[in-house]
């Protein structure tokens, strides 16, 4: 078991005990991995070379969990925490970028040509984050599915495993949450 995976395992134990510091400790690890991932992602210079999303996020998790003897439950728990930390990091990053670029304004994340697909939809990450927080106030289950699936990048099946619910349930919740968020963001005046 590598040093970092021991660290991750013990951190998760702490997290299970509700230790908020564990999240803070995990963040730099996840951050580094995200950064490495993003760099690899950006390196692909031509369009049409989209990576398989789950393959990427699995690299992140595998590196963090490598050789670990985490139990299934721990692993599931880990996905939850990792997804939350990824959310926090991404939002934080989008916020500081927005501040730097527009003197306090917010940044609209753009699918740059050459990055993902030919059409370039935009997504206001901060607005999404705010909407997700609102959603959590009256339906935490839906919000959790979005967090794990969108920010954590897990598939339906993996999300089911991580949240200990059936894939069918995940699918139903995901569909509703997506519709709700899309409506919220669609209604949000573009800032």
């Amino acid at each position: 078991m590598t040093k970092s995976s021991i660290a991750v395992a013990s951190m998760i134990d702490h997290a299970r005990q509700g230790d908020a510091r564990a999240l803070a400790t995990l963040m730099p690890l996840v951050y580094d991995e995200l950064r490495r991932l993003a760099i690899r992602y950006m390196r692909r210079e031509r369009p049409g070379q989209t990576l398989q999303a789950t393959a990427l996020v699995h690299d992140v998790y595998l590196r963090l969990l490598q050789d670990s003897q985490l139990s299934w439950q721990n692993r599931a728990h880990f996905f939850g925490i990792a997804a939350r930390s990824m959310r926090q990091i991404l939002i934080e990053r989008a916020r500081t970028r927005g501040a730097a670029k527009r003197g306090g304004g917010r940044v609209r994340v753009t699918f740059e040509p050459g990055l993902i697909a030919a059409e370039a939809p935009t997504l206001d990450l901060e607005a999404l984050d705010e909407a997700l927080t609102r959603l959590a106030t009256f339906d935490a289950e839906l919000a959790r599915v979005v967090e794990v699936r969108f920010f954590g990048g897990l598939s339906i099946e993996e999300t089911a495993e991580a949240l200990d619910i059936s894939p069918a349930t995940v699918k139903r919740r995901w569909t509703l949450a997506r519709a709700w968020l899309a409506r919220e963001l669609g209604d949000t005046p573009r800032r």
Binding site: L34, Y41, L56, M86, R178
Partner: peptide, 27 residues
């Protein structure tokens, strides 16, 4: 909600780190 669902297409289907990859690409 049903209407939003029909129009949502690929909304947030790609994971966040893909959408936001360039936020990390300073280097």
């Amino acid at each position: 909600l049903l209407d939003a669902h029909d129009r949502a297409a690929d909304f947030i289907e790609a994971p966040a780190y893909e959408v936001a990859a360039h936020l990390f690409a300073d280097a």
